[in-house]
């Protein structure tokens, strides 16, 4: 079985589904045997999910609308 360091070396690609079938087999075997890597994988996957679903850094609709309105008013005034 591969070591934890070898698992970590492929971990980023694994989260992104970018590993070959042969590597995938090794990683999944490791995960089934190693508790700490399993916890790491599971919680990192959840982290990505939570971050993605959080809708963070959403500029409130009214703020962005009024900002665009301001800029456009300025540009239209220059044009006129």
């Amino acid at each position: 079985m591969i070591t934890c360091d070898e698992f970590l070396a492929e971990f980023g690609d694994y989260l992104e589904n970018r590993v070959s079938p042969e590597v995938l087999k090794e990683l999944e075997l490791h995960l089934s045997q190693c508790r700490s890597c399993h916890v790491l994988y599971d919680s990192t996957r959840q982290t990505v999910q939570i971050v993605t679903d959080s809708g963070s850094f959403e500029l409130p609709q009214n703020v962005s609308e009024s900002m665009i309105d301001q800029v456009m008013a300025k540009l239209r005034a220059e044009r006129a």
Binding site: E58, L59, S64, M67, I68, V71, M72, L75, R76, R79
Partner: peptide, 13 residues
């Protein structure tokens, strides 16, 4: 300018 405005709305986020 209308086209430009629409582009800004699409990508402001």
């Amino acid at each position: 300018l209308d086209a430009f405005e629409e582009l800004m709305r699409r990508h402001s986020r």
